[in-house]
């Protein structure tokens, strides 16, 4: 088995008296995989991804990248190791073109800083096709504001993919999207995985998580209460398990996880 790309060991984080994460263990395999991170509001999903992105430092616990322990983990370091977070609401400059959004801040320039516009457009075109963006209406010089919600996420995903992200974190990408639009995002994510990028897919929607993920991880009140491979369950079973956990206040966690393995 390949060495894990990311491993969090016994991570805890509190904000004042509120304990957001309690001794959480989490990992991303060495080979590309899609992990669905499921949980209610306040479950600790945002805190967990902010720790992975380097925005928050954990109170205690250890972070390993490819088996190497990371000290002073930060946003800069996480980017350097290829961790890219795609936030739902603030990822894109809506009035700019698809190409400009993909290369924002990292433009392909020639001497004296002039942008290689043609190269950017052709690279953006190629990239959008690679991740499965097949619209005949929009090209890479179309403004993002004209795209649908799913296509906009596609642009943000393409951006992370182009810059060779090893791990892409998608924060609630399917919220407020129709099923068709959500399916587009699933296609983009699967294509990104084929290209060698792992993905943490954060969602409230169990069906969405099951559809796209290789592995589902359930967070509840700061703890990982369930973890299951897609091949060991189905969406209905996942819903039932989560209902059981909710009703029993997390006490049946052991039974469920044991039953899977």
């Amino acid at each position: 088995m390949k060495i894990k790309f990311l491993e969090l060991k016994n991570i805890s984080k509190s904000f004042g008296k509120v304990s957001a994460l309690k001794r959480v263990n989490f990992y991303i395999k060495g080979e590309p995989e899609i992990v669905g991170l499921i949980g209610d509001n306040g479950a600790g999903k945002s805190t967990l991804i902010k720790i992975i992105s380097g925005i928050h430092a954990p109170d205690c616990g250890e972070i390993y990248i490819k088996g190497k322990r990371m000290k002073n983990w930060s946003v800069v370091k996480s980017r350097a190791y290829g961790v890219e977070t795609v936030y739902q609401d603030r990822a894109l400059a809506m009035q700019q073109t698809i190409a400009r959004n993909i290369f924002m801040g990292r433009e392909l320039t020639s001497i004296f800083g002039f942008v290689k516009s043609k190269l950017q457009f052709s690279e953006a075109d190629r990239l959008m096709r690679t991740i499965g963006f097949t619209s005949k209406v929009f090209a890479s010089d179309s403004a993002v504001v004209n795209l649908s919600g799913g296509e906009r996420q596609g642009v943000a995903i393409a951006r992370a993919f182009y810059f060779k992200a090893n791990l892409m974190i998608l924060d609630e990408p399917t919220t407020a999207l129709s099923l068709t639009e959500a399916q587009k995002i699933f296609t983009f994510v699967r294509q990104a995985k084929k290209g060698g990028t792992s993905c943490i897919f954060i969602t409230h929607n169990i069906y969405h998580a099951y559809d796209v993920s290789d592995r589902c991880v359930v967070l509840d009140r700061g703890k990982i209460i369930m973890e299951t491979d897609r091949e060991h369950t189905n969406a209905e079973q996942l819903v039932k398990d989560m209902q059981k956990i909710a009703q029993s206040d997390g006490k049946v966690k052991e039974d469920i996880n044991n039953g899977r393995s």
Binding site: L92, M94, Q95, Q96, G105, E107, F112, G113, F114, V115
Partner: peptide, 27 residues
């Protein structure tokens, strides 16, 4: 030239469009 073909123009447009995103993307 600066506005349409230089990264300065590109940065100016992105900053005016979405300040947070521009900052996160390294502008």
């Amino acid at each position: 030239l600066l506005f349409n073909y230089h990264k300065f123009g590109s940065h100016v447009s992105c900053v005016g469009d979405n300040l947070e995103s521009s900052r996160e993307m390294g502008i």
